[in-house]
Simulated assay, not measured.
Amino acid sequence: MTLTKIIAVALVASASAFVPAHNARMPTKLNFEYGEYDEKLFDNNAKKDLYNKWDPNSPRSTRNFNPFETYKGNSCDASGIYPGEPRYKDPIRGDVSFAIMMAEKAEAEERAANPKAGDVPGCPGCKN
């Protein structure tokens, strides 16, 4: 009988070693805020809206990013997150046609020729 009690106590003690302790050092659920256009149409008009609100001199976040910036050849989602990064969500994209693409290309060339003040590589609001 004593050996049975010793074995039972040893089993309980070893099992409790795998139960996580609930104390102040354990991380709590992180709050994460997706972008303004998450789960909404993320077309060129939405990107232009975000670009107009973007401040290159403020830290990059899900609410402050250049939606036209590419990283490693990829475009970001509606929260400024790139494929392969945690929390990336494939955005709801708008219609595409050759005419739309040509109009967007002209707008992109205009943006590149006239960047926002502070829009330089390595600025706080840029990925690159």
Rank of each mutant, 00 (worst) to 15 (best):
R63D: 05
P27F: 11
T28I: 06
R93M: 15
S16P: 00
P27G: 13
A13I: 03
N44V: 11
N57S: 14
M102G: 02
A15I: 13
K105W: 09
A108M: 10
N45W: 01
K72L: 14
S14W: 04
V96R: 12
P83M: 12
D43Y: 00
L30N: 06
K47N: 10
F65K: 06
P86K: 08
N45F: 03
P83A: 13
Y51V: 12
A8P: 00
L3W: 00
D90G: 04
E85C: 09
N57C: 15
A24E: 12
E110Q: 07
K5M: 06
A24G: 10
R63H: 14
S61I: 11
N52M: 13
D38Y: 12
A108N: 06
E85A: 09
T70A: 04
V12E: 05
M1G: 12
R87L: 15
R93W: 03
E69M: 07
W54L: 03
S75R: 14
S58R: 14
K47I: 05
N31V: 13
I92A: 09
F32I: 09
Y51R: 10
L11C: 04
M1Y: 13
N23G: 15
E69D: 11
N23S: 10
E104T: 02
V19A: 03
Y88D: 08
K105P: 00
G94I: 07
N114W: 07
N45T: 08
G94C: 04
F65H: 13
T2C: 01
K5I: 04
V19P: 00
A24P: 02
D55E: 10
P121W: 05
Y88H: 12
V96L: 13
A78N: 09
I81M: 07
N74D: 15
E33M: 09
Y34G: 02
D55I: 02
M26H: 05
D43F: 01
D38G: 04
M102Y: 05
K40R: 14
A103F: 02
D49L: 02
F65Y: 15
N23D: 15
E69N: 12
C123P: 03
K47H: 09
K48R: 08
G35K: 02
A10S: 09
A8S: 00
N74H: 14
G80C: 11
P20K: 09
Y34R: 12
S58T: 13
M101I: 07
D77T: 10
D119E: 15
I6T: 07
W54Y: 10
P124L: 05
K89C: 01
G125L: 03
R87C: 06
D95H: 08
R93I: 13
R25M: 10
P115F: 02
R87E: 14
L30Y: 08
A99H: 04
V19R: 06
M101S: 12
Y82E: 08
D55W: 01
E33V: 11
T62V: 04
V96W: 10
T2S: 08
P56F: 04
R63W: 14
K72W: 08
